[in-house]
Design a binder for these strands. Structure first.
Lengths: 352, 352
DNA sequence: TGAAACATTCGAAACGATACAGAATGCTTT
DNA sequence: AAAGCATTCTGTATCGTTTCGAATGTTTCA
């Protein structure tokens, strides 16, 4: 049983180096405390089968020598990556969205052992591709993603595979999953109302990216409802949406505003696009606040300074990032998905 | 020696599951090819001591079953993380900088086995803190960071520890390290020149974040040189810089432009700040292009539409991200730091 | 023919962590 | 006094990979 090579190994083991240069491991602590690594491992995670005195001693040593668990070791053994992956498309023109989202998420993660990795994809590629990659290689414990669609294959896939995730935006698939969303229906509804209050009667909206993305529908719903209630006329812009290049938005806008039945009120759901709209409106020789009123959502606060006449509503994307991060983390911790769904509401006062 | 439990273990080992559900490992391939894992490992990395026929066979199987090395395994064994960490401060007001940087970097990394993680810190905290964390925990193979200072402790620390990194911006420490920088000196120089060409004589600049950051000095150098050559008057804004909140920049600007000796030409190094400047200028009752001319660098293209009279120069941050990513990767591969230093030059034509 | 050289392949050990099944120890119970 | 039971600790196997040293078989050379 205890052959000589066993002894040799032991003597090799005894030569634990406690040199300052090397990074401490459980073995280091075990050696210093005169305990086995198993005990140390458990003591550090407050396991019930370890004596209180031992726990204290081990935890003190760990703190003193600045022990931090080796992530590769944990990951290899347990499969837990301690990584949250933010999947986003790399050409979103929504100004300030990406950075604020990143900041919001990392604000939350920095209080935890989790790291944030960014996995981008381009709109030309299959949005499923990065998702599949993450799942197949097990490279994250949780996923945050945006551009959520009513019937989103990513949501279906991740749910089937039991991977925790949270979406920015909602689905309409009857699958309960964590999300955070801005109430775009209320935004569109209130926006139109505030235009009506200014006497505007012919109102248009620059729509969300494409009907494929859910919030497009919410905007549309709120818009139509408000138009109907107000007995106004709703116009749809053809040929442009929030994903269109700003240059094309500007040009198309000029066309529309010089055309026969131009709107006198406009709702826009992105600050960047709003700037292009304004450029187009002014190129047509019209004045914001006089010939036409513009309400826009913005995620960065330059719009109001751009043209003080624009009615703006601030969407706090950083807050969304925080909410989403918290949601995935709690989902990972086993919290029911239905408890991890939240909405941000537009503040009616901002839209007056 | 070969006790009964030894046999049990072996028989357990023989039952390599090639079920579809589980992720394939080297063992899976080894079993399928009737080889040892060692051979498979080597065959996959084209080691010279493996026969060509074997290599082909192994690589074919690997491709067929979609084998991807387990990152935790590799990382634990070799210490290689396959991670590049982008360290950035989480309140940079430079519009579009963060997102474009992230996109540029991931564009390059997506062609490699590297992942991108984002490690933010707030300006109130010690910028060394995230760097130390990464080095101490060995959580990245390379680092990309910005807000580079002339005498940057992070550069010193990373160089001493032999961790590959690339900076956005230069140092002045006599340490050769990879960087990518925009030639801010040329930008300031040309900006002033273009203002002079418009007949402006009293020129001010909204400075970089603080003299602590290197590009502040470059801007200053180019500015002074150009002012001197043109025999003009240079004014320094006091109390505001590019890090100041946009609201304060606006207010201070209004003050300055209604004051006794207001400038008639302004150089600004950030698009976001430029918008605040414009707001202040207009609040003072002045018109851009008439009473005063404004040249600004921008990393997102809204400025020109904001006020067509602004003279803009586009800094391609996405390109910077690509350059930085390539630089760290090549540095990791052992390329000499001096070969990994690049500059982007402002195009004189843009500033006319 | 035997030894040396080479070409291939392999087993075992290691990286750092956790899970599992024991094993000492002291205390109660019968 | 023996058995039972908590309490507290330990050794060993394991995750997937790479690397070291060695083993196998095949050529080559004297």
């Amino acid at each position: 049983m205890k052959a000589k090579d066993d002894n040799q190994r032991r003597s090799g083991e005894a030569a634990v180096e406690v040199t300052e240069g090397e990074r401490p491991t459980l073995k280091t602590i075990a050696f210093m405390a005169g305990l086995g690594v198993t005990t140390v491992s458990r003591a550090l995670k407050d396991a019930p089968e370890i004596g209180q005195a031992t726990k204290n001693r081990v935890q003190l040593i760990a703190k003193q020598i600045g022990y931090r668990p080796n992530r590769a070791g944990v990951r290899l053994r347990t499969g837990k990556t301690n990584v949250i992956s933010l999947v986003l498309n790399a050409q979103s023109s929504i100004m300030g969205l990406t950075s604020n989202m990143v900041y919001g998420i990392s604000e939350v993660l920095s209080q935890t052992p989790y790291h944030l990795t960014v996995t981008p994809y381009s709109l030309e590629n299959d949005p499923m591709q990065p998702i599949r990659y993450i799942v197949e290689t097990g490279s994250a414990d949780g996923i945050i993603m945006s551009r959520t669609e009513p019937d989103d294959p990513r949501v279906r896939y991740l749910t089937e595979h039991g991977i925790p995730f949270a979406t920015h935006g909602r689905t309409e698939m009857g699958i309960e999953h964590p999300f955070h969303d801005f109430d775009n229906e209320a935004f569109a509804y209130l926006s139109v109302k505030s235009l009506l209050a200014r006497g505007r009667r012919k109102i248009a909206m620059l729509a969300g990216p494409s009907p494929a993305v859910t919030y497009y529908r919410h905007l549309d719903r709120g818009f139509s409802r408000s138009i109907e209630e107000g007995g106004a006329v709703g116009v749809t812009f053809s040929g442009i949406d929030v994903d269109t290049s700003l240059g094309r938005i500007r040009d198309r806008m000029e066309e529309i505003m010089t055309g026969p039945n131009r709107p006198d009120g406009i709702v826009c759901c992105s600050g960047g696009a709003a700037i292009a709209l304004v450029a187009g409106i002014e190129a047509a020789g019209l004045k914001i606040g006089e010939d036409v009123d513009l309400v826009s959502k913005q995620s960065t606060d330059v719009l109001k300074w751009f043209r003080p006449q624009i009615i703006v509503f601030n969407e706090d994307v950083r807050h969304a990032g925080r909410e989403l991060a918290r949601a995935v983390l709690r989902r990972i911790a086993g919290v029911d998905a239905r408890e991890l769904q939240s909405l941000s509401y537009p503040d009616e006062h901002e839209l007056r």
